[in-house]
Design a protein around this nucleic acid. Structure first.
Lengths: 231, 231
DNA sequence: CGGACGTTTGAGGAACATCAAAGCCTGTGG
DNA sequence: CCACAGGCTTTGATGTTCCTCAAACGTCCG
């Protein structure tokens, strides 16, 4: 796995009020006046596929909002293997654990080129005291993380490998508004579903032969109806 | 599985200020005055092993604090099987998703006789506005749920069945201050670790033969050092 | 005593991991 | 422009683990 920590030089300063995904993000409910409480700039940074946004156990000073692209949260196992704990899509928060003054709990690595906003936690803490709306946004995020994790536990780590892969493909498809979605590498599919790279490859190849799945590079389309029969 | 909804008659009214596990619970940081904001009584209820505290998708009006005992959060799969999503111990919150006006996300079922405090969410919402300390307690709980779920995903649903069972036994032992801990039934071990009841039984029997585990009824003791070699 | 329930154990087979090798695509350098 | 190296994917052969089905055993309780 590539392991390049991002270069944080030349980040652009972002105007939250005019953000194109404003209705998705943490600050969706903030009023005009609230933004005056932001003392540090919100930096808009871009990272490339394979770059590491932050590392597990490193000091957590920022929360990040995904504007575009895709991030995997990774935890390494004692035996050197890794598991992907969660996938982050546009509108999701990365590093929310920073709000408790703790270190980050995972490695955050970009799966494709990704744009993010970097928000200093000091500002968030100040805003929380003033804006009850922000508090609600935050707990909504926690709630979403919890329920996603629950579904993951209940659905994606049990059953046959075909069922798991089918479930994951349907999940990835549902995340995207486009008709095609990003299909992670076989190794990452394995790390997501707790199966080996080879098994992931076999199932994907099988689905392609059956016409349930078409791919070009990492762009994929599925036949939802037929895939659902595997669940 | 038994399925008796709890009888909510004759709950005792609890004095939070004098609660014996006060330092553990949600209201740990509240000041004397804050308690005046509680309009409805906090009920202290007792449920027996096998009783259901609340059901998935039912209206969520209360958050619960576990005072003693043990609760499993359960989700049923389409095929009729169930998975245990999380175990709750004294000091943990059950039904925290109620704070978002949603239905409960799981079935909550007692594994042994359990004492709980029933807290109306209307009161909590009022307290949040007044007490920033409560807000911090709440986000701390969300954070703990997340990190526990992450560990579960990374550690307990991968690897051989022996590794999973060993990990679970060590986890259960670490939760308790006593030298012995509660060992769930084989079926529940399977639902926790995504293995079959039979496999759970075989591994437990094997560990007993090897002297890594002693049991009396549901009370168990382990040899930590030797068990850690399976991880 | 008899029935219900949970646990243990066995035999057989299917699914998946492991090990190994070949194929394929991309980018680089001669 | 071609050759080649490196990474990712596919495929095969083999072995192990675990699931499935089945039956027996122990325990608790009416």
């Amino acid at each position: 796995m590539k392991d390049t920590l991002i270069n944080q030089a030349s980040p652009g300063i972002n105007k939250c009020q005019q953000c194109c995904i404003r209705e998705l993000v943490l600050f969706a409910d903030l009023q005009q006046d609230d933004f005056k409480l932001l003392h540090q700039p919100i930096c808009n940074i871009e990272i490339k596929a394979g770059d590491t946004l932050y590392r597990e156990k490193s000091a957590a000073n920022f929360v990040y909002t995904i504007r575009s692209g895709m991030i995997k949260l990774v935890r390494y196992l004692p035996n050197g293997n890794y598991r992907i704990i969660r996938l982050l899509h546009p509108g999701d928060l990365a590093g929310i654990e920073a709000l408790h003054g703790l270190a980050y709990l995972h490695h955050a690595i970009a799966l494709k080129n990704t744009e993010i906003c970097q928000i200093p936690i000091a500002d968030i803490e100040q805003l929380i005291r003033k804006s009850p709306n922000l508090y609600k946004q935050l707990t909504a995020r926690w709630q979403k993380i919890q329920s996603d994790a629950d579904i993951w536990l209940a659905e994606l780590t049990v059953g046959s490998s075909k069922k798991r892969v089918a479930n994951l493909l349907l999940y990835l498809d549902a995340q995207n508004t486009n008709e095609s979605f990003y299909l992670p590498a076989r190794e990452d599919l394995g790390a997501l579903l707790a199966i080996t790279t080879e098994t992931a490859s076999r199932v994907i190849a099988e689905f392609k032969r059956q016409g349930l799945l078409q791919t070009q590079q990492h762009s994929a389309q599925i036949d939802k109806v037929k895939l659902e029969q595997y669940i």
